[in-house]
């Protein structure tokens, strides 16, 4: 079956969207011509990141927040990421359980993704899948990261607004937060706020926000909100806060800045990935890699000169040639 995927996607075919996403996940070359065509239709969606420890209630919060956004008449795309097993490569993607009722809302598109070995709380193809949803016309795209703990910082590159979900009693006291985690949040959400200890978490976060110049930046003091997602409490306020952050980003030109940086990083990363893929394939297929590894292992050669030699051969950088000659 031949199909004009780009046209189908722009005309609203969820099936074409679904297949393109699979190709992106599989790094199937059929994806790229389609991406080239739909790219100019991207850049309209607002991208939210939802992150936090396992058990923080991210899926339920995503579900209820989506319902809140839908009541404003906006359409929503959700990318829910779960970890792949490093041993079997398989994954159980369970985030849809909490979002069952959204499945049949035509204004919502949910895609579950496995990390497939990628670290940082998202998968390698997440950025591309977000672009597909953007071109598909979703107004707001929510990326729900893996609940891997306290070092999911990759989301900051992808999202316009990042919400860090905390809960009382899970042992993720603010003190135990690794450096750099608090700084990723544009909005703090203390979920399950009907539990004992919620006010203490709020107080601790507020104190940190006040003290830390990396968190409280020019034009924006991250708000600390309370929600009880399972009882649908505090979601309207969360959406207002997101909207407020967005307004600030737009007014100050920071949204443009943020997106510029994102595009820069993405472009570099894509070039990096492609170069790496080509070089690796060539080295592997020719059997050269095996020989090189043997040489290094036997200490006949060292990996540093090999690196310079190979990159020098592939990319004719004058600097390299100068140094190796």
């Amino acid at each position: 079956m031949t199909m004009d995927y780009a046209r189908e996607i722009l005309q609203g075919s969820p099936r074409a969207v679904a297949r393109l996403m699979s190709w992106l996940e599989d790094e199937d070359e059929r994806a790229y011509p389609v991406m080239e065509e739909i790219y100019r239709h991207t850049g309209k969606a607002y991208i939210l990141g939802i992150t936090g420890s396992p058990g923080a209630g991210k899926s339920t919060l995503t579900d209820k927040l989506t319902r809140t956004i839908r009541r404003k008449g906006l359409s929503v795309g959700i990318v829910a990421v779960d970890p792949s097993s490093p041993f079997t490569g398989g994954a159980v993607l369970g985030d849809r359980v909490r979002m069952s009722e959204l499945s049949i809302d035509p204004g919502v598109y949910i895609r579950s993704m496995a990390t497939r070995g990628f670290l940082g709380g998202i998968s390698k193809a997440t950025a591309d899948v977000v672009k597909v949803l953007d071109a598909f016309g979703k107004d707001v795209i929510i990326i729900e990261t893996v609940g891997v703990g306290q070092d999911e910082v990759d989301i900051i590159g992808l999202a316009d607004t990042t919400c860090l979900i905390l809960v009382p009693g899970l042992g993720d006291g603010i003190q135990s937060m690794k450096a750099g985690v608090m700084e990723i949040a544009d909005i703090f959400v203390v979920n399950k706020a009907d539990r004992a200890g919620a006010d203490q978490v709020v107080a601790e976060v507020c104190a940190r926000v006040d003290q830390d110049s990396h968190i409280k930046v020019k034009d924006w003091t991250p708000p600390v909100l309370k929600t009880v997602a399972v009882e649908d409490q505090g979601l309207e306020e969360l959406w207002q806060a997101i909207d407020g952050h967005r307004a600030m980003l737009e007014k100050t030109g920071k949204l443009h800045e943020k997106r510029r940086e994102r595009i820069c990083n993405e472009t570099l990363r894509m070039i990096h990935n492609e170069l790496f893929r080509v070089v690796r394939e060539q080295l592997q297929d020719s059997g050269q890699l095996d020989n090189l590894v043997t040489d290094i292992l036997d200490h006949k050669r060292d990996p540093y000169s090999i690196m310079r030699e190979i990159t020098g051969k592939w990319i004719s950088l004058p600097q390299h040639q100068k140094e190796t000659s």
Binding site: T88, G90, A91, V92, L93, G94, V97, S112
Partner: peptide, 10 residues
């Protein structure tokens, strides 16, 4: 999942 599949449990 152990057999390497990606399983969406509803």
């Amino acid at each position: 999942a152990e057999a390497g599949m990606e399983v969406v449990y509803t």
